[in-house]
Design a protein around this nucleic acid. Structure first.
Lengths: 234, 234
DNA sequence: GGATTGGCTATATCGGCGTTACGGCTACAC
DNA sequence: GTGTAGCCGTAACGCCGATATAGCCAATCC
C-alpha cells in the first residue's frame, strides 16, 4: 500500500498508457523507460523483470478497479449492490480492454494478485448478501461462479466488434448466474431452510462476530456451520 | 478443407507441440522451422506472418475440437448432447490449456475463425434443442451465453492451480446457464407459448425446411417468426 | 538438345527486443 | 582527503520476427 515511489508509479502509468494505445496489446521495456526519461537498468532494479512490470501494471489496474467499486457500493440493499457490481465490472472491461485482459486472462508465471483481490471484493459483497439471507450457496462458490461468468462475458464483448446487443447479453448472463446463487426475492425459496440459515449465520459471524460466545466456542461453531454448508468435506 | 500440404501440416503440428511444451505459452518461428528441417522464408511463404501461423494453429485446434465433438454427439436427446458438449468443452480446455487460450482468448489482429466456428457448432446443437421445443431463447443468443460461460469457467480452471472442486463449479455454471436457456423439462414451462412455438417452428425450418410452401413464402414466414422472437428489431 | 525462365529454397542480414556486464558518478564515513 | 558503497547510464549480448538476395532445379521453348 505504501506506494510512494514516484518513479515506479510513473513507469507503471507509462506502461499502462502504452499498453492501451499499442495496437497489439504489447509493451516494450525500452519504450516505457524513455517515456519517463530513465534507462533500462532502473526498470530491472525496480521490477526485476518485464513480467514484474506487467504484474505491477495489473495490480495498479486493481487499484483503479477497487476505487471504482468503493465509490459505488453504498446502497443499503446488498443484492442491488451486487447487480451494480456486475455492471461496473463490464464497464471497466469495456473502458480498458487491454488492461482487463492483463488482469483477468491467465498469464504463465504471473505473480499478480489482481484477480484474487477482485474475488475477495466479490466475496465480501456476497457475504453481505448472505448476512441478509439472500444467498443460496457459500460466498466463495458464488464468487467464483460470478467472476467466471463476468470474465467470460467481458472477453466475449472484447473479442466481438462491439455489436449492438451488448447490454442484453450481459444482463441475461447476470440474471442466469444470480438466480442460481441468490434466493428468489419474491417468494422466499427455502428449499433447505437449515442450509440457508447456516449460511446466513456464518456470514453474520464473518461480518460482525459475536461477544456472547468465547473465541474457542465461536471457532467451533464456525466449523459446525461449515460442516453443514459443505457436506462433502467430512 | 483440402488441407493436403504435408509441410504446412507438419509446421502447424510442430508449432502446437512447442506451444504446449513452452513454459510461457510462446512459440518462436525459428524453432518451428528447424523442427521440421526447413528455413524461415518457407514459413513466411506458407503463413505470411507469425500471426498467420498462430491462426493456423488455432484453426487446427478447432479441427480437433470438432472431431472430438462429432465423435460424441450421437444421442437422440439433444439436451443430453448439449450437456455432454459442455463437459467435452471443459475437458478440451483442461487437456490443452495453451491451445485453448490461443483459440478462445481475444488476440488483436487475429484472423482465426476458431471461435466463430465453435459457436456455429453450438448454434447447430441448440437448433436441434429448439426443434424439440426445449429452448426458451433464440439459438444465437443461447449460444453466445453458453460459450461465454464456458470460456469463463475454463479460463478460471486454467488460472487456478487445478484445485479439487473442479467438476462441481463447472456443473453449477452449466446448470445456471442452461436453466435460463432451456425450458424446464419436468413441468412444461410455457410462460410465453407463442414465443416458444415460434422458436420451435423456426428451428424446424432451419433443420428440415418445408415443401408445403413456396421458397418466397417460406422466406417471408421466417421473417415473421424472427419478428416474433426478436421484438426489438422492428 | 541446350538456353531460358519461373518458382522455390537457403544464406545472410537488418532492426528491435529483453536482459545484463561493466565503468563511472555521487554521496557519505572515517 | 581518501576510501567505499550504492546508483546510474553506456554498451553490449543473444534472441527474435521479418526480408533482401542469390542459388538451385525443373519445366519450357526455340
Amino acid at each position: 500500500m505504501a506506494e510512494t515511489d514516484p518513479l515506479r508509479a510513473a513507469m507503471i502509468e507509462a506502461a499502462e498508457r502504452q499498453l492501451a494505445s499499442s495496437s497489439d496489446h504489447e509493451v516494450a521495456t525500452r519504450a516505457v523507460c524513455e517515456a519517463v526519461g530513465v534507462s533500462q537498468p532502473v526498470l530491472y532494479r525496480l521490477f526485476g523483470d518485464k513480467r514484474g512490470l506487467l504484474d505491477a501494471v495489473a495490480d495498479h489496474g486493481y487499484e483503479r478497479y477497487a476505487a471504482l467499486k468503493a465509490a459505488q457500493e453504498q446502497t443499503g440493499d446488498p443484492v442491488a449492490d451486487l447487480h451494480a457490481g456486475w455492471d461496473g465490472h463490464m464497464a471497466f472491461a469495456k473502458a480498458n480492454p487491454a488492461l482487463y485482459q492483463l488482469m483477468f486472462t491467465p498469464r504463465p508465471w504471473s505473480h499478480s494478485t489482481a484477480r484474487d483481490r477482485v474475488m475477495d471484493l466479490l466475496v465480501a459483497a456476497l457475504t453481505r448478501c448472505a448476512a441478509a439471507g439472500a444467498l443460496k450457496v457459500e460466498p466463495q462458490t458464488a464468487a467464483r461462479l460470478i467472476l467466471s461468468a463476468n470474465v467470460g462475458t467481458a472477453l466475449d464483448h472484447i473479442a466481438r466488434p462491439a455489436l449492438f446487443d451488448d447490454p442484453a447479453l450481459s444482463h441475461r448472463m447476470r440474471d442466469a448466474v444470480f438466480s442460481h446463487v441468490l434466493t428468489t426475492t419474491t417468494a422466499q425459496n427455502d428449499a433447505d431452510p437449515l442450509y440457508t440459515a447456516a449460511l446466513r449465520l456464518h456470514a453474520q459471524l464473518d461480518l460482525a462476530g459475536t461477544e456472547a460466545l468465547e473465541p474457542a466456542e465461536t471457532a467451533l461453531l464456525r466449523r459446525w456451520l461449515e460442516r453443514i454448508t459443505q457436506p462433502g468435506r467430512g
